[in-house]
Amino acid sequence: MLKVFKYTLIDLLRNRFVLSYAVLLLAIGQGLFLLEEDPMKAILSLVQVVMALVPLIALVFTVVYIYDTQEFTQLLAVQPMTRRSILLGQLLAMCVAMLVAQAFGLGLPLLVHAPGSASLLLSLSGSALSIIFVVLGALIATRLREKARGVGMALVVWLLFVLVHDALLLALLFTLSDYPIEPWIVPLAGLNPIDLARIIVMLEIDLAAMMGYSGAVYKNFFGSNMGMLVAALIMLLWALVPGWGAMRAFQRKDL
């Protein structure tokens, strides 16, 4: 596994897409901090960008990379190593490549312009989202044979998490506003890792009020250490469950 990881990472760190992603994040991060006088406002804008861009790039990059290296993966699968080692090595390398690009593009401006707990939390949330969406991308690419369908599915999944889930949640809250739905708000947020990441960062910036009534519920739950632990566990599950699915699909797949 470590051998596949090492050489895949060497390849990825020279990959133009990864380098462009790092530069794009740096341009956005640096640009926002230069445009806004208040670093907190810049961080707030950066939250919105990160929550949309990071999952999209991680998903599409993973799906495209897995399809484009299909022939090489076949060659690896003929070598004396298990398929589990191949996929784990590749996944780990893709996660590290995304995280390195993010540390350079996002971490650097945050460190220079707004060092603090909010920046740290934003970086950690972005990293968690990178890992989760790399794994989701792997799940898609190992289950669907055709690249076009894989990329299409990746975009649908991204739209579901970024737009559709929020819209449905809002509609639900609005429709059921006369009923005691507070116990459901937190579990519903857990269904979307992007929402969860956004909530955690917003609470740290102390902008829960922007989320209205549900903000109070979130603050009450995620504001505590136990709440943060639960959030971390949910994020972990978001990486482990699709990862297990991808591994299972890859081990049974005809290459």
Binding site: Y7, T8, I10, D11, L12, L13, R14, N15, T69, Q70, E71, F72, Q74, L75, V78, Q79, P80, M81, T82
Partner: peptide, 20 residues
Amino acid sequence: PAYRVRIGYMPQISQFPGAL
């Protein structure tokens, strides 16, 4: 994996990681 130690394969399409 022991079975694969004995096998060599030359595929029709040779595609490798481009940056290596």
